[in-house]
């Protein structure tokens, strides 16, 4: 098990290196720079700024020193937020995005898996029939449509919830963003759970248990353990997509998370901030996928033996 984890962590190194390299050169080869303001700076001032931030050195040398700093855990200073390091900004933005993502994940999983189980246990029932169209519908609801609709319904018309803002994570400010993030995933999770559980319920061991007279609730519990494997495997990429999907949600609701920092960083040509956020997201994607795989191995002894 330890060896499996170590190998996966080792495999993450080239991936992260690719992320760093591609985003670094993509940004530097593009026209424009962080100090191109509306009113151009005096050439001497520009020269000075570029020297202070090391932008006058050859590109490869800059890349080398960025990597060296990265190994030490230093993401460099932000170009657009004066006197703040990228690590400071991430330390401020990550809790926001993580709170939203985690709550949305819990909500989507609870609803999705619950509906999926209900549909699988009563094939052809109301839940099951609604799921066919309902899943396609939630999958097709873009967050940039859901968010304004929720804002107008609950913020402007009913005045139950605030339109946006963070307000130190007050629960009332969390509801609309979390629902927006979770909604598209409910249908996908429900469908996955239903298909998987329905298949498991047809297998020989489950039929045997039933014929031996085990109570239906016990049978379902046993079947669920196996049936949840694909669901757990899906949760890894899902958690990652909830983080990336937060770009729109954070923009619409005006939340200071990493998605917002990323977009602002990209618009301001804040090289280090963009690199930092992209690296963070890539690292999270890898870590969450690994966590999902480990959870699968814990659920399924056959996978444990294979790894």
């Amino acid at each position: 098990m330890i060896r499996f984890i170590l190998r996966r962590l080792l495999q993450a190194v080239p991936t992260l290196l690719a992320v760093v390299t591609v985003s670094f050169f993509l940004m530097r080869l593009a026209p424009g720079g962080p100090f191109d303001l509306e009113r151009p700076l005096a050439p001497a001032a520009m020269e000075n700024l570029r020297r202070v931030y090391g932008l006058d050195r050859p590109l490869v040398a800059q890349f080398g020193s960025y990597l060296a700093a990265l190994v030490r855990g230093d993401l460099g200073p932000s170009f657009s937020f004066r006197d703040q390091s990228v690590l400071d900004l991430i330390a401020r933005g990550l809790p926001v995005s993580a709170t939203l993502g985690a709550l949305a994940l819990v909500l989507a999983t609870a609803l999705g898996v619950g509906l999926g189980i209900a549909a699988a246990l009563r094939r052809g029932g109301v839940v099951d029939r609604l799921l066919g169209v309902g899943a396609a519908l939630t999958l097709s609801l873009p967050s940039f449509v859901v968010a304004p609709l929720l804002q107008i319904a609950f913020g402007l018309t009913l005045r139950w919830l605030p339109l946006g803002g963070w307000n130190d994570g007050a629960p009332s400010h969390l509801v609309l963003p979390v629902v927006t993030l979770a909604l598209p995933q409910v249908g996908a999770l429900a469908r996955l759970t239903r298909t998987s559980l329905a298949e498991t319920l047809r297998t020989q061991p489950v039929r045997t248990m039933r014929s031996l007279g085990l109570p239906p609730a016990r049978v379902t519990r046993h079947a669920l353990r196996g049936a949840l494997l694909p669901v757990v495997a899906y949760l890894g990429p899902l958690a990652a997509s909830l983080l990336t999907g937060s770009v729109v949600v954070e923009t619409i609701f005006g939340l200071p998370g990493i998605g917002r920092y990323f977009v602002e960083g990209a618009l301001n040509r804040d090289y280090t901030l963009v690199m930092g956020t992209v690296l963070l997201v890539a690292g999270l994607v890898i870590a969450l996928n690994l966590a999902a795989d480990l959870a699968c191995a814990w659920l399924d002894p056959r996978l444990r033996a294979a790894s």
């Binding site: 991936t15 690719a18 026209p31 990429p237 770009v247 990209a266 992209v278 890539a282 994607v285």
Partner: peptide, 19 residues
């Protein structure tokens, strides 16, 4: 697998912002 782990939406945004 490596490409799957990339935050692609971020790259597309980068590409379109910078060019």
């Amino acid at each position: 697998d490596v490409l799957y782990a990339l935050p692609f939406v971020f790259f597309v945004i980068l590409l379109l912002v910078f060019f």
